[in-house]
Amino acid sequence: MTRLALVALAGGLGSVLRWALAERLRHGLLVANLVGSLVLGVVVGSVDPGTARTVLAVGLCGGFTTFSGVALDRRRLVVNVAVSLAAAALGLALAR
């Protein structure tokens, strides 16, 4: 129950950060997906399973990044997926 509350809180925070980026930058969602995927790669590669990892991964990174926000435009989705895959790979590599 505590874990769900923390995940929800982190998800709300991540969503607000994503919204703030999108309001300020033309490619704000791409930046959010890039940074969020990089951070998640580091988290998955370096933090042991537990509440902290779940809150950071599912809550913060999950709430910060978005799929639905970029899915309405095919080219935009492909670019976002490609950039996120590369960012996550870099994050996983950095965590080793």
Binding site: L40, G63, T66
Partner: peptide, 12 residues
Amino acid sequence: LGGLTTMSALAV
């Protein structure tokens, strides 16, 4: 919808 979906999990 932004919170329901995720790009970071997909990528990792």
